[in-house]
């Protein structure tokens, strides 16, 4: 395992911001930490990179404990903080060069590394401009670029798309997906379900400082017992024979019939649509509308906590 978070707890006075969290990330994975605002994501990440001392527990990254050898951990990680952490009156290039020096990038590689990350975030043409003249999205991209300078084994990103326009967000997510494809391990926190679903193979859902669900996307859906729901509106009322016919289709779990509405629960979603429509046709029940709702992490969160992910 590249990352092992062991029984991590952080108390601020009476508030337990992070409560006995544990998870591990194998090398090469894109790991998502999904949770609403105030769930404890930033506190967890801050403990992982040595900015906040844990009340108890430990984090081991690349074989080094953050408690016992923080400098070794710092060499293995790149960090993209939730807040833009750049010098506004320095140019992008000056910022990158400074942070590259702080990250122990060898002097002979300074120029090439700075060029490389500027290319990755596609801001090479604006490198000489002061950060204060950048748009929010551009600042976010440089903020990410700083985390890439030392070619880290683990890139930790704390809500890196907050306040970014949709286009920049897509470009950021695509970039991260590509970096992950090339072998970089990611730890990505967000309160946007879509981002985590898009980027991450493995997800931990966190709420009030606790991990309430943890697994692959598929695992999580099954864990909540959620099925795809196919809702069919018929032109006129159907009878029990129609329901039995649908229930007999392979892949269908349950069928509910109420007046002109049929609700079919299944694990196979859209692939069943054609079969369902032809079965209803055969039964002489013309379809008015049909709709597939795939369960998502939002539903899972709702199921687990009774509240919505967004505030």
């Amino acid at each position: 395992m590249l990352v092992e978070v062991k029984d991590l707890t952080k108390r601020f006075g009476k508030l337990t911001a992070v409560n006995d969290i544990h998870f591990s990330i194998p090398a090469g994975e894109a790991f998502g930490l999904l949770g609403p605002n105030g769930a404890g994501k930033t506190t967890t990440v801050s403990m992982m990179c040595g900015l906040v001392a844990p009340s108890s527990g430990d984090v081991v990254i690349d074989g080094h404990s953050i408690l016992h050898d923080p400098m070794a951990v710092h060499r293995s990680i790149g960090v993209v903080p939730q807040d833009i952490a750049l010098y506004p009156t320095l140019s992008a290039r000056e910022n990158l060069t400074f942070f590259a020096r702080m990250q122990d990038v060898p002097p002979s590689m300074l120029t090439s590394r700075v060029d490389a990350v500027l290319d990755i975030v596609q801001l090479a043409d604006r490198q000489k401009d002061h950060i204060e003249t950048y748009s929010g999205g551009m600042k976010r991209r440089i903020n990410i670029a700083v985390g890439l300078l030392n070619q880290p084994r683990l890139l930790i990103l704390d809500e890196p798309t907050v306040g970014v326009d949709p286009q920049s967000r897509n470009s950021i997510l695509e970039t991260l997906k590509e970096l992950n494809r090339q072998g970089m391990t990611l730890l990505y926190t967000s309160h946007y379900m879509e981002e985590v679903e898009f980027l991450c193979t493995h997800i931990a859902i966190i709420d009030h400082g606790r991990v309430i669900a943890d697994g692959t996307q598929r695992d999580l859906r099954l864990q909540a017992g959620n099925k795809d729901i196919i809702s069919v509106q018929l032109v006129r009322e159907a009878d029990g024979a129609v329901r039995d016919r649908l229930a007999a289709l392979p892949g269908v779990d349950t069928v509910e019939l109420r007046d002109k509405t049929i609700r079919i629960a299944t694990d196979q979603g859209r692939s069943l649509l054609a079969g369902i429509i032809s079965a209803l046709d055969d039964a002489g029940c013309p379809v008015s509308t049909i709709d597939v709702k795939e369960p998502n992490l939002e539903d899972l969160f709702l199921n687990l906590t009774g509240t919505s992910l967004r505030d």
Binding site: L51, H74, R75, Q103, D104, V146
Partner: peptide, 8 residues
């Protein structure tokens, strides 16, 4: 904070 996440 950012500087303190580097080996500095």
């Amino acid at each position: 904070s950012r500087v303190l996440t580097t080996p500095t």
